[in-house]
Nucleic acid binder design. Structure first.
Lengths: 232, 232
DNA sequence: CTATCTTTGTGTAATAATTACACTAAGAGA
DNA sequence: TCTCTTAGTGTAATTATTACACAAAGATAG
């Protein structure tokens, strides 16, 4: 492939995306980080990120890089914030559009891809020091997740399609960092009429088996169009 | 000034900012638009926007362009969303970081600046057709404003430092597109303890004069740090 | 100077939402 | 069959939200 260059009348910042990937496991919120293979921040942990191609949207870029570097595909992402401080990348001026992803950990194989030494889930309360300004991005993503999870049913992206009410409660407790009364939680979440109780129960548990439920996306879509607000 | 050019190994999108400017007057929410002097969209109404200089943050860029094109300075802005669709600008690939601004209309002189034929306030319910994808940006900004105004005291940016409770109520009614009960509104907003009643009343009104109030930013800061949530 | 007009400023009762709280049922394993 | 663990359930007390009407102020017009 022949090398070519691109010339403009004015200097342009490079444009990149970075992605904060949330998972949920063992009652804990986790973050997927990658260990960099190259400078800068070689062998340090960072968010997966990379440069935006001139023929893709930032959304497409975030999804592509997620797959290239971690093996994740078809995940739920939302734009978070655009970071444009002048020295956030030591190489040159890079403006980063950040995203957060909510991933069902069990559903995917994690693979260290291009430019990455390794990929690993970290508990949110035990993160390593991150390269670039990624600590700041993670902080903002957490705040956003906490705010959003209360009035939009996005938490379900972190669980299996079928889940028990206790799993769902633990998820909310982990994200919101509170404890929730079991009876009140069930009353409220079932009262919205958005969970469907399945005929199936947990298996291989050494105690009373819980029913599985699934989130009814179709009904939610209808209701939210007619002004209904999901609110926990 | 000699012309020079900038060369990179990979093609880069141009980076710009666009700003949705909200004002409030005569009980109505308004938007400040500019009429473009040049192609594309010559003589059409658009949001004030322009390209990011390689030595400024997008925040700085939005503030600079606001001043250059409309004369507004020192205004409250917040980042909204980054738009990166491939054909949003007919000239070339432009990624735009959008902002919204809340402006006290009375406090500033509006001046048509660089590249602008004229600048004008439009009622939010009677906007002209906008150039680029700016209609979409305005729609998102409105949604964001509606959501945010309920749990952050940002509405005050649209009013004078001293305002009457009726003015404040009308502001909320305009943004949220509802009507609010006067007594319940006052009970709630005064109950938060964030408004200070001044010794001054309205003047030159042909009816009972209302007391002026001001928002106590200092107390709000303290309270919000200790977990208090403004919520209307 | 009196009557009229407009808007301010105020309280209470009815209803709805949220919180606090404890025991039985199921089922695996010892 | 006993023990252990978690599932699943209702009610009363408290708090928040809603609905609603009239006297007081002050300018203006006659």
């Amino acid at each position: 492939m022949s090398k070519r260059t691109y010339t403009y009348d004015y200097a342009r910042p490079a444009l990149a995306t970075d992605c904060v990937i949330f998972g949920f496991d063992e009652g804990e919120l986790k973050l997927l980080l990658i260990e960099r293979e190259k400078e800068p921040f070689k062998n340090m942990w960072t968010l997966p990120g990379g440069f935006v191609d001139v023929k893709e949207t930032t959304n497409e870029c975030a999804l592509r890089i997620l797959q290239e570097k971690t093996g994740l595909k078809n995940v739920f992402i939302e734009q978070l914030y655009t970071f444009s401080e002048l020295n956030r990348d030591p190489r040159e001026r890079v403006v980063a559009v950040s995203y957060y992803a909510l991933v069902n950990k069990r559903q995917y194989e994690i693979v260290a891809g291009r430019d990455t030494v390794s990929v690993q889930w970290f508990p949110i309360n035990d993160l390593p020091k991150l390269g670039f300004d990624h600590g700041k991005i993670v902080k903002l993503a957490l705040e956003r997740l906490k705010g959003k999870v209360r009035y939009q049913p996005i938490g379900f992206e972190l669980l299996n399609k079928k889940f028990t009410l206790t799993q769902l409660q633990h998820l909310y407790e982990a994200i919101l960092e509170t404890s929730i009364d079991k009876r009140n939680f069930r009353k409220k979440i079932l009262g919205m009429g958005l969970l469907e109780q399945l005929d199936e129960k947990e298996q291989n548990v050494a105690h009373k088996a819980a029913y599985y439920y699934s989130f009814d996306h179709k009904t939610y879509k209808q209701l939210s169009q007619s002004g209904f607000l999901f609110e926990l």
